[in-house]
Design a protein around this nucleic acid. Structure first.
Lengths: 157, 157
DNA sequence: GGTAATGATGTAGTACCATCATGATATGAC
DNA sequence: GTCATATCATGATGGTACTACATCATTACC
């Protein structure tokens, strides 16, 4: 009845290790998961209104205000007026944060090659295919679950 | 200069998907990451004193009291007196929680075979080797980083 | 030009995780 | 028996992540 160590176990372990590493990397800074997510979104989509951030991150606009407050106080982000809509404010990565994100990406790439280097050269192609397949399947499963859940809400209660 | 999608990216994505899935799975219950970690530890090491839990989870005893309070209120865990040391209380998984954890492991195993099923049969062995190698390398890197950090504290400041 | 929607924020509140300081009780060494 | 130590509990604090509701300026609609 003892379960063998499966690929899934390894993936979960890797997931945990990543989290641990992230947490330690940002220890001592005011950066937290939610704030980093916002920075990531900014780097990904460029300067955005707070409303846009709220939508893409799936949280309330009020929450964005708080997150941006903290990031602005830390110098990671700047607020500037929207050129045509005087209600809106535009949030953008500060220069230092852009630098930091670039650095993160560099480290990310380094880590990537390092980890891949630990894999037997003959296994790499198969590994890549396998990991892709697993990610795809996982996305599929989650999407299906989400759909089921949405339907239940639609119909029930 | 556009970075290609690497294995690391996929692994990070998988990591995120796992987290998302977990969060949704326990939505509506009083279970949170910290509490689940405690349940996991209990299942892994069996009934334990709070002090033991504090040590193995690396948090303050006070924090354990709070976590156990919540889990006890939810019926996931029981407190009973230590047979020989009347200071200590022993925390154990309640029967229903044991059932739940077994169920989780079953689902875990199912998911594992499901995901592996999405991988081309010819790639599976290589995938397994590759994922193992990556996990090992990651452990190594983190251990090295931890050692470096510990030394710095030892020496500096 | 009046009314309704929009964008950000102030206020207030919930819940969680984590800490330290303090105190009660039990243990174990002397 | 006394006293340091260990185990746990409580209270107080602080920080984060969210929410809902109300407010105010601005913009869009007719």
């Amino acid at each position: 009845m003892t379960t063998p160590i499966t690929v899934l176990d390894r993936l979960l372990e890797i997931s945990e290790l990543f989290q641990k590493d992230m947490a330690r990397a940002f220890d001592g800074t005011p950066l937290t998961a939610a704030r980093i997510r916002l920075l990531w979104e900014l780097q990904h989509s460029g300067p955005s209104t707070q409303h846009a951030l709220a939508t893409s991150l799936g949280v309330s606009p009020r929450n964005i205000t708080g997150l941006v407050d903290a990031l602005e106080a830390g110098g990671y982000v700047t607020r500037s007026p929207h050129p045509s809509d005087r209600r809106a404010t535009i949030v953008a990565l500060a220069a230092s944060a852009q630098q930091m994100m670039r650095e993160m990406q560099r480290e990310h790439a380094e880590l990537s090659t390092d980890l891949l280097g630990a894999v037997d050269a003959a296994d790499r192609a198969a590994l890549e295919r396998g990991v892709d397949a697993i990610a795809a399947r996982l996305r599929e499963l989650i999407a299906a679950d989400e759909a089921r859940r949405a339907e239940r809400i639609e119909v029930g209660a």
